[in-house]
Design a protein around this nucleic acid. Sequence first.
DNA 1: AATCAATATGGTAGCGCTACCAATAGTGAC
DNA 2: GTCACTATTGGTAGCGCTACCATATTGATT
Lengths: 342, 342
Amino acid sequence: MSEPITFKKTRRGSGALTLRDVAALAGVAPITASRAINTPSQVSPLLLKKVQDAVARTGYVPNRAAGGLASSRSRLIAAVTPSTVMSVFMGTIEALNSALFEADYQLMLGQTSYSLSREETLLEAIIGRRPDGIFLTGILPPGKGRTMLLASGIPVVETWDLTPTPIDMLIGFSHDDIGRDVANHMYKRSYRSFALVRASDERAVRRGIAFKAALTKLRLKQPVEINVGASRTIKSGREALAQILKTAPQVHAIFCSSDLLAFGVMLEAQSRGLRIPHDMAIMGFGDAPFAADLVPSLSSVRINGENIGQLAARYLIDRAEGRSVAEPIVNVGFSIIEREST
Amino acid sequence: MSEPITFKKTRRGSGALTLRDVAALAGVAPITASRAINTPSQVSPLLLKKVQDAVARTGYVPNRAAGGLASSRSRLIAAVTPSTVMSVFMGTIEALNSALFEADYQLMLGQTSYSLSREETLLEAIIGRRPDGIFLTGILPPGKGRTMLLASGIPVVETWDLTPTPIDMLIGFSHDDIGRDVANHMYKRSYRSFALVRASDERAVRRGIAFKAALTKLRLKQPVEINVGASRTIKSGREALAQILKTAPQVHAIFCSSDLLAFGVMLEAQSRGLRIPHDMAIMGFGDAPFAADLVPSLSSVRINGENIGQLAARYLIDRAEGRSVAEPIVNVGFSIIEREST
DNA sequence: AATCAATATGGTAGCGCTACCAATAGTGAC
DNA sequence: GTCACTATTGGTAGCGCTACCATATTGATT
């Protein structure tokens, strides 16, 4: 019953169905089949139906790599993130991915938090795909990577931080403001003797510096500072508090650079019989999903990460489709969530 | 000083540097430049150096979409995962991504846990990119999606589960065995009255069924069963325990379908003054990074997710490069980690 | 000296799709 | 009936790269 279809035989190619096959089946020119699929409004109802039938009958899926090559539009967005297990960035990435999916873009993931040379390799791999946009977690310091991105001409959003000199677009907030506001907030709640438990990443360091500067301004003693390196774990938090209690028993309030660390501090405090916040106040960062549910609930600094992801998606898509972005630098701010632990 | 290079002017194309430009600069044919970049051993040292210089001078990054189109090798692997925030799959995805990066493959991410039609759209988007391999979290039930994958001919690994009829390759473990082993394990530790707190995903359900079947075999009463739906949160865990205590105060041990739920149960138990495990024993699933650090530490079922990711990467790469995989179906097993909460 | 093989380089022809332009038919205005 | 205009369809020529084949060139082999 079905008309005989002659497939062009060649030793090249993937052997998969092509637009030409579908067009032949539908009895139209390849370009008409292309339009029927991509811009159906430009095709008459009759031919449209023929093409759609042919697509349905064959299960044809257009090759987007070929389409992208022809149109210089890959419909691909790349995201660069640090290691993601249990990370505060996951919500952002997920929101980004959802918004991109809605708009028929695909997310390509790259992970850094390795050496700097790895980062350059990663950026090269990304640029090699010619994505329509690049999402960066954090801001990229001057260097080869930054130069490559600039030279590539691909729209870029940097996120989760602020700088006067972004590569292109920027959606973030001020870590300095956070450090300062947390110090003032704790001060208002009558805490006077502080410790700082933080990871070694640059943003945590900056929050810490601002925190310390604010304490100085308040004429308070500098906090005890524990650097847990890259290990943002409950265990590190526990060890950090143990060390603080040993070397500085007067400490009465602790600002942690992540909620997981804060939770560790909390566990250690509880296992030593300290009452929270009476004997020890604890402030986290990130407002992880579990923060509100801990006992006592954990005070934290909330960043609307989903909002950053959605906004970034919109910005990148706008730019990919040739629209300009009205406000390419946005400070999304933060809020200090006061709960039982302070 | 620099020789004049005439760029072909056309209104098409991205305007970016191409292999032709680099070849012209180096004074060789495009194909020789291609070989110098991809298979340097095939080019004489003299020309190799010329090409490398030209690449360095211009900052040329090859267009992999074009390369992929020509060679039918995209060097792209797609991964399909459920929503990822705080999920047990993150370790696997991260290991997968690292291993792929090492081998110069790129990861494309797709998220499901939406409707079934969404899943089909996602698979179509993925197949449209012609990835060299597809990683699936879980197994894909018969349906349009499965048919599409089968028809595409792309290597596929299903993971985190077992089935006699995989699409292609399979790296997983038996949820039935877990349910059964946990029941027997708890029985040996002298617990007799159980509850089951679980999410509604199919794998959690299956663990639950096996758990209940094992209890029956042990001639014990069926457990109280709380379904928290898709909400695998601490809060749901707390509410679940509250409900259990109200309707079935005799319950003495609880098997939770995730560590986060288990943690919620633990918090609720503690806030009610119950001693763990004396008054209430708790078993989680997934062995999250925090499980060992809780107080008391949480017993859990450990899956080596990183191993799954690494193995999947190796399998997919092997298949992408034309090698066959000796053992395409692997049961990586699991282990019950006995800690203080049971 | 003729033969063979291996190495190095280049030319040609696509991969599967879409931008751009051309051609045709149909519409309404005048 | 002519003109301008729109809607619909198709042809052509790439996008930037690599597979495949052809051609030198060299050295070793008989």
